[in-house]
């Protein structure tokens, strides 16, 4: 060392560098241990699913025999649930966040709403299941027995029951409620991070509050909002407990709305109207069902295959969502 430092300082410096290195290693160990556990889990699943996860498994409906079980109705069910959940919770969640961040005056009521939204994010999913069962599936038991209604729209007719029963709409609304707090909080965060100078510049040009929010604030917040929605909805779609409580079936051998392919939608879009009012099953439900089968040994393989399909679906969804987010980010020309 070319410059002189006193001995005490040098000794302490050595200790400080040591502590720094130790901390770095500790973080490394923690990171790798969790990654390793995940890798082991995934490896085990793949090993178990090997030979069971094939095209037939993907294109078959569920069956009580392990060899003939499939995920098709579950994949469709989960996809519809996902769409409906996102469709319901985005406008409500973003609207709530815009109100709380942009309009609401900071008074007692707003503070209570904020606090409770944060609390709702911590409520266990099974509670939402009970809520959905009472409100959507049974309509508080106000009906003695289910009534069937049919609406005709020339090309298509919609048939539904009141109370709704365990249909996709009930599931979608329940999962939307479940994701709502997370969407609201993430959207609030995104709105808050939009610089005030952007708002002021817009106001100074004679923009109304709504024009400022719509033209400046929301576009700037969209990537952040999208991230929150993706996280919340993929979390919700992986949920089993609320769907079990709702009473969704596992042994279902048709796809919701009898839509079996994208071609079906193009050919007869009228079928879409029936999707929300159809019974359904979902991937996590199927997996839950298989884990509880008596023929545990063989169904373990089926369950592993199902889990891989679910993970694949969520990965695909996240990929699509990340693409959407990047698209919006490019549209804002920072």
């Amino acid at each position: 060392m070319s410059f002189s430092i006193d001995e005490d300082y040098a000794r302490r410096l050595k200790r400080r560098h040591l502590a720094s290195r130790v901390f770095e290693r500790a973080c490394l160990v923690v990171t790798w241990s969790s990654v390793t556990i995940l890798a082991v889990l995934l490896g085990l699943l793949l090993y178990q699913a090997w030979g069971w996860l094939d095209l037939a498994f993907l294109t078959r409906h569920n069956h009580y025999e392990a060899d003939r079980a499939g995920v098709l109705s579950g994949v469709w069910g989960s996809c519809w649930l996902m769409l409906l959940t996102a469709f319901l919770c985005v406008p409500v969640g973003v609207g709530t966040a815009v109100y709380l961040e942009e309009y609401a005056k900071p008074n007692w009521l707003t503070r209570q709403i904020r606090l409770n939204v944060a609390n709702l994010a911590g409520v266990p999913s099974v509670v939402y299941g009970i809520l959905g069962f009472t409100v959507f599936v049974r309509f508080f038991g106000l009906f003695d027995r289910p009534q069937t209604y049919a609406l005709n729209f020339g090309m298509t007719s919609i048939e539904f029951h009141l109370p709704l029963g365990a249909v996709i709409l009930s599931g979608g609304m329940t999962l939307a409620l479940l994701s709502l707090p997370v969407v609201v909080i993430a959207s609030q965060e995104a709105l808050r991070s939009v610089p005030a100078s952007l708002r002021h510049a817009s106001y100074a040009l004679g923009a109304t509050r709504w024009q400022t929010i719509w033209n400046q604030v929301l576009p700037a917040a969209t990537p952040g909002i999208a991230t929150g929605v993706i996280l919340a909805v993929s979390r919700a779609v992986g949920e089993t407990a609320p769907l079990v409580v709702l009473g969704a079936a596992t042994q279902i051998s048709f796809n919701p709305g009898r839509i079996n392919s994208v071609v079906d939608i193009v050919r007869s879009p009228g079928k879409l109207a029936n999707v929300p009012f159809d019974s359904f099953t979902a991937l996590p439900l199927l997996i839950y069902g298989w884990v509880n089968e008596i023929d545990a040994e063989r169904f373990a393989h089926v369950a592993a295959a199902g889990i891989i399909v679910l993970l694949g679906l969520l990965l695909l969804m996240n990929g699509a969502a990340i693409y959407i987010r990047q698209h919006f980010r490019r549209k804002i020309r920072w």
Binding site: L198, G206, I332, R333
Partner: peptide
């Protein structure tokens, strides 16, 4: 106030272009 601000333009210390073209 919206009509008022249309009549009175303002330029800020920190330039604040919108993230648009």
């Amino acid at each position: 106030v919206v009509a008022l601000r249309k009549r009175i333009g303002m330029v800020f210390q920190k330039s604040t272009p919108f993230p648009k073209s």
